[in-house]
Design a protein around this nucleic acid. Structure first.
Length: 490
RNA sequence: GGCAACGUGGCCGAGCGGCUAGGCGAGGGACUGCAAAUCCCUUUUACGGCGGUUCGAAUCCGCCCGUUGCCUCCA
């Protein structure tokens, strides 16, 4: 099956052809570690996590690199505020990042390089650019000369003249052209600094990614990704440096995810309208965040709200209950039926269409629509089985096949349902943390359900309802089904 | 101001020349001791406005209106 991807560089959907199949190289710009990650970062991380899983699922051997920017102005400022070393700040937020990633189920990249561990490589890139005449040293700084690279602006569809007119870039006597950007910044007093041919200083922002790509993936990579807000200037400046140096296209496909907004406005630190990932995954199961992200196409804006989290939670629970139903259906009396069940055909269609949607520029919302169509089919099966009080062997087998197919694909590609086990309820992170002390509670709930069932058999509904209401007060909901009473926390 | 997107039914959100997206909500029904959950049915001028191309446009083209992003650190 061929995969089509939207390439920011061409502005078109293109068929995905890796340089050296089945090998695929992907680089995405990671976070600057000066604070906790928010939902905007989370979206980007989840989106590329799913791309990577999907490519792996298609049989590609993916090598995935995602960096940490662990030295920059914001980290330095933060360190100054706290009278701490900048590395302490960086290390703290890298640790925090890993906790977030574990909780939102984003797989680690194959290499997760840090800028401070690649200073030498960065210096080599800068040195090469100076040698080839694309960069110049000026008062201890080194700048890339935008005029020297005629294709500058090709990614973000701008031209140098327009940029100069609208330039709000702070003027600097050291720059020849206001659009020139710093590859190396000379150290000011009290700032972290490394030795270089141009004196002590630190790397500018844009060179790090180029140096790390060269080192860990090579001169030309298949996919370079990041948030839409990185297109200009960051990725434009990466292209300028890398291509000036090698004369080859830096990345074959430039892929950018849409931004997360709040009330229509971009979620950002500076606006203060952000919600941290930690806040989300302590309130909701991480699958719900992933589902929220995947319900919108990756290139569209995604407006975050807690109401939407609630909506997504309901959609998630409907999916879960369809899966859990299998164990209850197994308890019904069975009978033999002639022929194969039509549900088997639907499962086959589902799998085909699910991957077809994903192959069309990672259309996850459409893929989810296929998921929910199958879920509806399962609901119909369940309903009929319960109204007849029995289920055919073939139908039960089809239901089980469907559940396994959903589980396999939602786990493998979407990273959902990783902790799902039919006999256990799915818990939020907080619930998991509390789980150790819960065994006793569960026994008590089961005992109460047993007592309630006895009461119901005696038609002592007042007693039965008292138990149900009482459990509701402590956050446990009961559902009576022909196959027995289910309970869950809410 | 420049550049780039986007405007779909109560809300969210796919589709991008002809064929039911899907989710959430709301109303009705089935089921239930009553619920809950689930399923079924309904929510049928849905495609910002005005022109144009076409046998046929939400889907292509033009203009207008509106929203957003980038142009400064940013996933």
């Amino acid at each position: 099956m061929s995969l089509r991807i939207y390439n920011t560089l061409s502005g078109k959907l293109e068929e995905f052809v890796p340089i050296d199949p089945p090998r695929v190289t992907i680089y995405t710009c990671g976070v600057t570690v000066y604070d906790d990650s928010h939902v905007g970062h989370g979206r980007s991380l989840i989106v590329f996590d799913v791309f990577r899983r999907f490519l792996e699922h298609m049989g590609y051997r993916v090598r995935f690199v995602r960096n940490f920017t662990d030295v920059d102005d914001k980290i330095i400022n933060r360190a100054r505020e706290e009278c701490a070393h900048f590395m302490n700040i960086a290390n703290r937020y890298i640790a925090s990042y890993y906790i977030d990633m574990e909780n939102i189920r984003v797989k680690p990249a194959d290499v997760e390089p840090r800028v401070t561990e690649h200073i030498q490589e960065i210096i080599e890139v800068i040195r090469g650019l100076i040698e080839k005449g694309y960069a110049y040293e000026s008062g201890g700084d080194v700048y890339f000369s935008v005029e020297s690279f005629p294709e500058y602006g090709k990614l973000s569809k701008r031209n140098v003249e327009e940029l100069e007119v609208g330039a709000r870039i702070e003027p600097s006597e050291r720059k020849r052209n206001p659009l020139d950007f710093a590859l190396w910044k000379s150290a000011k007093a009290g700032e972290p600094a490394w030795d270089s041919p141009w004196g002590p200083g630190r790397p500018g922002w844009h060179t790090e990614c180029v140096a790390m790509v060269f080192k860990h993936l090579g001169e030309v990579i298949d996919i370079h990704g990041g948030g839409l807000d990185l297109v200009f200037p960051h990725h434009e400046n990466e292209i300028a440096q890398a291509e000036a140096l090698t004369g080859k296209p830096f990345a074959r496909y430039w892929v950018h995810n849409g931004l997360v907004t709040v009330g229509g406005q971009k979620m950002s630190k500076s606006l203060g309208n952000y919600v941290t990932l930690r806040e989300v995954y302590t309130k909701y199961h991480p699958d719900i965040l992933r589902l929220l992200v995947l319900f919108t196409h990756y290139r569209s804006p995604l407006d975050f709200s807690w109401e939407k989290m609630e909506e997504t939670k309901r959609a998630y629970e409907r999916l879960l209950s369809a899966l859990e139903e299998l164990e209850l259906l197994k308890k019904l009396p069975t009978y033999e039926e002639k022929g194969t069940h039509p549900l088997f055909e639907r499962i086959k269609e589902f799998e085909e269409e699910f991957f077809k949607s994903l192959s069309d520029d990672f259309n996850t919302p459409e893929a989810l629509a296929k998921v929910y169509s199958l879920v509806s089919e399962l609901g119909k099966v369940k309903n009929r089985a319960y109204s007849e009080g029995k289920i055919s062997v073939q139908e039960l087998s089809a239901y089980e096949t469907a559940v396994n197919s959903l589980l396999k694909n939602l786990r493998g590609v979407f990273g959902l349902l990783e902790d799902y086990k039919p006999e256990c309820e799915v818990k939020t992170v907080v619930q998991r943390e509390l789980a150790a002390g819960e065994v006793l509670d569960e026994k008590l709930v089961e005992l109460l359900i047993e007592v309630r069932d006895m009461a119901r058999k005696e038609k002592a509904f007042q007693i039965a309802d008292r138990i149900r209401d009482g459990l509701k007060d402590v956050g446990i909901a009961l559902e009576d089904t022909p196959a027995g009473t289910k309970w869950k926390r809410f």
